[in-house]
Amino acid sequence: MTVQPEAPPIGRTRAEIAARVAEDLNDGDYVNVGLGIPLLVPDHVAPDKQVLFHSENGLLGMGPAPAEHERDPDLTEAGKGFTTAVAGAAIFDSAVSFALIRGGRLTATIMGALQVSASGDLANWYVPGRRPGVGGAMDLVQGARTVWIAMEHVDRTGAPKIVERCTLPLTGRGVVDRIYTDLAVLDVTPAGLVLTELAPGVDVATVRAATGAPFAVAAGVGETGR
């Protein structure tokens, strides 16, 4: 009996996806980060950029998670874990928090996804039959100036999460601007999906095989490996 050696892992780790998203943040941005890979993004922002992170329970200027002895039950983040406030942070009630979301003050919201369609439809809040919970996702996708998705390219069964049409309940229609995955970066444009970047060691054919929707390839991508 011969043992097939496992294929070496390709593409970016979850932390590397977060680091790649952080590269695209600019000094002075106001950003909401959701659960999962997005929550890793603040750790990867270059020290020369001041990015203020927003937590929708009422905090602008969210800092890193506290050490155990510094936990304060009156200072938590949107996932209900303990957090900290950076110098200059501001705290406000939930109506003000969502006023700044709907009012277009967030440069970006970075979220995970269950499915994203070729036209930028997003499904990331509900699998019928499971726990119903929408949180602030529907407000964020309508209010933030840009919606970036940070996720694994395929689900746990290997099925594509980027699809022609979402089959799961939508969070919003045509709301996604950019998708960062372990394999690639894709933009959602009026003409459809465009592959703008490959993760190191990944080729276009690998991305096509893992993607459930057609996409164009931006000029120069796939020729140099990035």
Binding site: E56, S94, S97, F98, P132, G133, V134, G135, A137, D139
Partner: peptide, 11 residues
């Protein structure tokens, strides 16, 4: 259950 987006609930 009247499920309501969080910002809609606040408003």
């Amino acid at each position: 259950l009247d499920l309501t987006p969080q910002g809609t609930l606040a408003e």
